[in-house]
C-alpha cells in the first residue's frame, strides 16, 4: 500500500477556548474519494480549510503528499511553515467553496485564466484554451464572456469547480458545494462532481449534507463529531449498517429531514 496523500496525525485545532479538532487522525489514499459528514460545528469544514491553508493548526502534524503542510523540516525538527512553503504546498490543492467565491469583476473565462497566467506563468493563449476546455466540461462554454452575477447559482458553482481545476491540483476539496443552491440547481452541480469522480484520478474530499450523493460518489464515508472521526467505512456498509449509536442518531435525524 502506498503512502496516504493526506494524513492528519493527532491534529488539534482550537479557536480560543473552543476545541474544533481534538487529536484527529485521518488518512486519504491517492485517488480516493472521501466524504465527510457530521453535525454542524463538528469540525468537518475545518479539515478542508486546514488543508487549503486557510486555517492553521494548534497541535499535531498534517501531511500532504508525504510533506508536512504546516511545518517545514529543518535539521531533524519540524518548524512552523514559511509562506513560501505554504505556497509550494498549495499547488497540490484546489477548493470549491459553499458560496462559490467567484471574482465578480472578472468574466467567467477570466476567472479561469487569471490564476494560471499570474501564478503558474501560462501564456494567455494557453490559459484561454485550457479555460475553454474546462468550461466545456462543466457545460458552460457559451457563458465565457458573461460576468458571474449574470449566471445562476448552479452555473456559478460549476464555474468555480472549473476555476479550481484550471490550477491542475491533485487534490480537490469541496466544502458543502451545493448547500447555498436552490433545490432545482443542486443536480447540475452534483452531476459535474460525479463526472469528475468517475473520469479522473483526482483525490477528492467532500463535505456535504446530501447523503444520497455521498453514497453515490464516495469510496469511503467518515462521520465526524466533537472533532474526531467516530465512524468510517464504505458507503454501503456505513449507511445500511452503522455501528455507532451517534452515527445512527445523526443519520436518522438527517434522513428524516430529507
Amino acid at each position: 500500500m502506498t503512502d496516504p496523500i493526506i494524513k492528519f496525525d493527532a491534529v488539534g485545532k482550537r479557536f480560543g477556548s473552543v476545541t474544533v479538532l481534538d487529536g484527529l487522525d485521518f488518512e486519504v489514499a491517492e485517488g480516493e474519494k472521501v466524504t465527510i459528514i457530521g453535525p454542524s460545528g463538528s469540525g468537518k469544514s475545518t479539515i478542508l480549510r486546514i488543508l487549503m491553508t486557510l486555517e492553521s493548526i494548534s497541535d499535531g502534524v498534517v501531511y500532504v503528499g508525504g510533506e508536512p503542510l504546516w511545518h517545514e523540516r529543518k535539521g531533524g525538527n519540524f518548524v512552523p511553515a514559511s509562506e513560501s512553503h505554504l505556497r509550494e504546498m498549495r499547488r497540490l490543492l484546489g477548493m470549491v467553496f459553499q458560496s462559490f467565491n467567484l471574482f465578480p469583476h472578472m468574466t467567467v473565462l477570466r476567472n479561469l485564466t487569471e490564476a494560471p497566467v499570474r501564478v503558474l506563468g501560462l501564456s494567455r493563449a494557453e490559459a484561454r484554451e485550457r479555460g475553454l476546455e474546462l468550461l466545456d466540461m462543466v457545460g458552460l462554454a457559451d457563458q465565457a464572456k458573461k460576468f458571474p452575477h449574470q449566471l445562476s447559482g448552479g452555473q456559478q458553482q460549476r464555474v468555480a469547480i472549473a476555476r479550481a481545476l484550471a490550477m491542475r491540483p491533485k487534490i480537490m476539496l469541496f466544502d458543502e458545494p451545493t448547500s447555498a443552491l436552490d433545490p432545482e440547481l443542486v443536480g447540475e452541480v452534483q452531476a459535474v462532481i460525479r463526472q469528475l469522480a468517475e473520469e479522473h484520478d483526482l483525490t477528492m474530499l467532500l463535505v456535504t449534507h446530501e447523503m444520497r450523493f455521498a453514497r453515490e460518489i464516495s469510496d469511503r464515508v467518515c462521520f465526524i463529531d466533537g472533532g474526531r472521526i467516530r465512524e468510517e467505512g464504505a458507503p454501503e456498509e456505513f449507511f445500511t449498517n452503522p455501528k455507532e449509536e451517534r452515527t445512527r442518531d445523526f443519520l436518522h435525524a438527517i434522513l428524516a429531514d430529507n
Binding site: 487549503m52 486557510l54 505556497r87 467553496f97 458560496s99 499570474r118 476555476r163
Partner: peptide, 20 residues
Amino acid sequence: AQYEAARALNFTPRQTLFRI
C-alpha cells in the same frame, strides 16, 4: 471569501491586493 478564494488559487498578497 474573496481573500480566501485568492489564497486558494495561490495568488501572492500583492496580486491579491491589486488584481482581486
